[in-house]
Design a protein around this nucleic acid. Structure first.
Lengths: 162, 162
DNA sequence: GGCGAATCGTTGAACGTTCAACTGTCGGCG
DNA sequence: CGCCGACAGTTGAACGTTCAACGATTCGCC
């Protein structure tokens, strides 16, 4: 794409984009801070516990965990290491694959999640869900789903469709 | 608020919230990466240049800069320090207030911004604006404006309305 | 069955952000 | 004027993330 022909955003589009940037920044910060202050856990760590809790065995392979929270494997390794020394989960070798490692939620992790979930959901409601109309909220879902699909496509397979 | 009475999200609300978390994560990462790869500048730094460029004098007080990009003052201090040693801006004492410091965009910063803006706007279009209908995009604007307003209220003044 | 490529996860250093403490300047009130 | 509290910005260390390189295991193919 020739940079000389870039189609700029209209004033209105720019206004919306700014609102998005600012709102998502503020929302993320607020949710993270609330969890830290009230439960000593970051939003990142919280999301990992959520993923584990959704599986009956409360166990997941590192790579899958990384994909499901959209973080690099390295990042998940570090995060899980911290969470392990906090006692919220432990690592176990995967049964079937000698390379693999499972993260397994502990009872302490379960208890923490149960408490933190209240804070988190109340924050999401108070600062987003309960503030907007159903139609707008559904539109948000459509938009963000489209964005995800666009950015997830061209990941592992052939990549850059541009 | 009694944690025992938390009203959980419906399955549909949860689905939308997940899409939001994932989409905003992916979008931010992509925009940041594109700027870094093509111009050696982070999204954070880019936004600071944008703010400066919107003022005729291309100069802004540190505190105002911090507020306008929604970052802590400390963060802006560090970011500006890095940008200063890259030559994209310089610091000058504020004329009227002995405590104040202005960040002033340099010619090099202006040139960089001019180039990086193409990359950025094309990314925003390709991964968001051009993918969704006008109505949905406007809904996104309404939603994120509401969120911003909610989170900006109760900042400096009396705070926590809850 | 054995070789090379791909996958899994980790490591440690570089980088960026947060946090609490701090210096210096301003504003208001006695 | 002089003091005290608020404000502007910085500092350095702690913390969290990214990046590139790595060792180990598995897969695919001949």
């Amino acid at each position: 794409m020739d940079p000389r022909e870039t189609q700029w955003l209209t004033v209105e589009q720019q206004r919306i984009w700014r609102a998005y940037i600012m709102g998502s920044q503020l929302l993320q910060d607020r949710l993270d801070r609330d969890l830290r202050v009230e439960h000593g856990i970051s939003l990142t760590e919280y999301e990992i516990l959520v993923r584990l809790s959704e599986i009956p065995e409360r166990r997941m392979r590192m790579a899958l965990l990384a994909d499901s929270v959209c973080h690099s494997r390295s990042r998940v390794t570090h995060t899980v290491a911290r969470m392990e020394s906090a006692g919220w989960l432990r690592r176990e070798e995967a049964a079937d694959d000698g390379r693999g490692v499972d993260a397994v939620m502990t009872a302490a992790g379960g208890t923490l999640l149960e408490q933190a979930a209240h804070t988190h959901v109340e924050g999401v409601r108070r600062n987003l869900v309960d503030l907007v109309g159903d139609d707008d909220f559904e539109a948000l879902g459509r938009v963000m789903n489209t964005v995800s699909d666009r950015l997830l496509a061209g990941r592992t397979p052939a990549a850059d469709i541009r």
